[in-house]
Design a protein around this nucleic acid. Structure first.
Lengths: 354, 354
DNA sequence: CATTGGCGCTCCAGCACCAAGAGTGCTTAA
DNA sequence: TTAAGCACTCTTGGTGCTGGAGCGCCAATG
């Protein structure tokens, strides 16, 4: 039993009511529908289920399944289509995922660019979209707000460049306008002070502790410090978590989605509205392992006919972000799930090494 | 006569053949078509041209215009639609642009984020897409490959962070793996050497000149230098020109484009293929002032039903990049042109100030 | 009693057909 | 040169028809 089946909502009456045959039929129905997108009729099901039942018998079971809300028919005389609930049950208890084989994992690993965090995250998103042919999403890790090293660099008379190496090795830079003209040695002095006394602290901490020492400092130094703190603070919030999306284009080709243009537009608007997406993905980062949101389960209308498959990734055992895929609800889950799973793991190990 | 009408291909016979009346009619035809997207018939033209001609007379002129390739009819009994050539003539000699008023310019100016080059460019692209409701594009300035300041920072035993301030004030950083463990003072020494001797040079120059001095340096120093140079080179190519696009979503709503899905997909694929786009925009940066590419004029099929309006921007009088808008050929040029024009100018002045 | 075959019913997709409307081209008259 | 009239063409929207797919129900069957 794979451990990423987290949201198992296996209500008692469901498994009771769904005998083996019904489950089997639901399974093949969903599989067939995922495979070719057409409503599945009793005839087809009788052929592909491997159960050696006549269409008539199957019709009875299908009627039951429909009553229980697992499947629905678009109109009177079409085949049946899985409902969101049907998909849910399918991925939770019927789905059999085959893990990626070694070769695929190696390919995937090779495509990650490990030069720096930014590139790593971007390439992960890219790989996800390439492999699944859907949209890949990665939430960048929240930066720890502490700093490791600070440096002042004189650009012009009254313009300084503040270089800030954060605790996790990323570099931020900010231009500061000053009132006074500082000499290089003053700048070095200020930087040294900050580095020696406060390296590793958050800017809030520094501000608090600096307050006590402020009296012993010269006026101009104080100003420089204050500017540095403000800039640092801004840099910290600036580097807040963000979400990287790639391969949105792929979704244009999915006919399930591109049939109604307005839905598609909403979806793409959602992509531009990072914050909303972030909330959804934040939820997923609280759980462990692969999570699947089907249709509007996430509470966002634009995702009506989409599913989101996510998995958190971690640094040194602590969850710091989420990777995932957004595609049509009618997607090949047994393929997408291991891809997301493995990507999360590779990302974790790549980040932990550094 | 506005100076951004650069590509005036006013062949002699064209202006000769197009008497004032024909020009007037072509103008109102294009304007009407741009306004409501329907083929324009002789009746409508007679009403809106202000020429007090009967539909029958106008039909004669329209027949001429069609023969000359300025307009075309989608089918026998529809109105007429401007051809690419018709649009061309329209924007080149018939169009009257009204410049933005002061208030709009100020609004626009307020939306540009001047914190750093990256933000400036991104916000410019954003502003363009917001104002025109099409896709905004900005080619980031090519970085000058020289450097202003170098700094080494020890991350771990054998891991260094190379901080590189380029001549134009942008900061790059690279992680370097070393073989030897360097002491902080060694790092300072190396940085000082590079800063004092080579500030302002390109990395190629440094490499050449360093070659002579290499003998006088200790072995470990040489290695450090080599690593720095390699990283610097990579950073320089890495920060090569790139193109920032925003508001692609807007194009989903344009019914001219979203009618045929496959075209739309091609278009979005083009957006992901930065390099191709870059070539097109590079061409535009050779000319001065606003340039307009109509339909496939740029030589790219995906842009069949699109127009591209571009303008180069400059730093200290030297053209360093291009801003522009991609939208449907049926766009309100008299509005888009000044927006692009002003954005380019604002960007220029914002960049020159720093 | 579960399973099956058969029958009637419903709905959709595709096609042909028709009428209305819009707009043109051509011809003729002022 | 301009205008008016007329015949012609083409699109658009609506209607009606047919074949096919699939279901529900019912009775028969092992």
């Amino acid at each position: 039993m794979p451990r990423f089946l987290c949201k198992i909502v296996r209500m008692a009456h469901e498994t009771q009511a769904l005998n083996e045959r019904a489950q089997m039929l639901l399974k093949t129905l969903v599989e067939r529908y995922i495979a070719d997108g057409q409503p599945v009729g009793s005839r087809a099901l009788s052929k592909f289920s491997g159960l050696d039942l006549s269409p008539a018998s199957i019709r009875n079971v299908m009627a039951d399944l429909e009553e229980m809300g697992f499947i629905a028919s678009p109109h009177t005389s079409a085949g049946r289509v899985p409902t969101a609930r049907g998909y849910r049950f399918f991925v939770d208890t019927l789905l059999t995922v085959k893990p990626l084989d070694r070769i695929e994992i190696h390919q995937l690993e090779g495509q990650l660019q490990v030069e720096n965090t930014q590139k790593l995250v971007t390439s992960a998103s890219h790989v996800l979209s390439e492999l699944t042919r859907f949209a890949g999403i990665v939430v960048t890790p929240r930066r720890t707000s502490g700093f490791r090293h600070i440096e002042f660099l004189k650009l012009a008379e009254k313009r300084l460049l503040l270089i800030l190496v954060t605790a996790d090795g990323d570099v931020q830079n900010r231009i500061i306008q000053t009132e006074k003209v500082y000499t290089p040695s003053e700048l070095v002095e200020a930087a040294n002070l900050l580095n020696q006394k406060f390296a590793g602290c958050t800017f809030d901490e520094i501000r608090r502790r600096l307050h006590d020492e402020l009296k012993q400092l010269r006026e101009d130094m104080t100003q420089l410090m204050a500017a540095a703190l403000a800039a640092g603070d801004q840099a910290a919030t600036d580097a807040a978590e963000d979400v990287v999306i790639s391969g949105e284009v792929n979704l244009l080709g999915i006919d399930d989605l591109s049939s109604n243009m307005s839905k598609l537009r909403e979806l793409f608007n959602l992509f531009e509205h990072r914050t909303t997406l972030l909330q959804l993905l934040d939820v997923s980062s609280r759980a462990q392992g692969v999570q699947i949101f089907i249709g509007g389960e996430a509470g966002l209308q634009p995702l009506d006919e989409c599913s989101v498959v996510t998995a958190p990734y971690e640094v040194d055992g602590k969850i710091v972000g989420t990777v995932g895929v957004i595609g049509p609800t009618r997607m090949a889950y047994e393929r997408v799930i291991p891809i997301v799973d493995v990507t999360a793991k590779l990302l974790s190990s790549a980040l932990t090494q550094r």
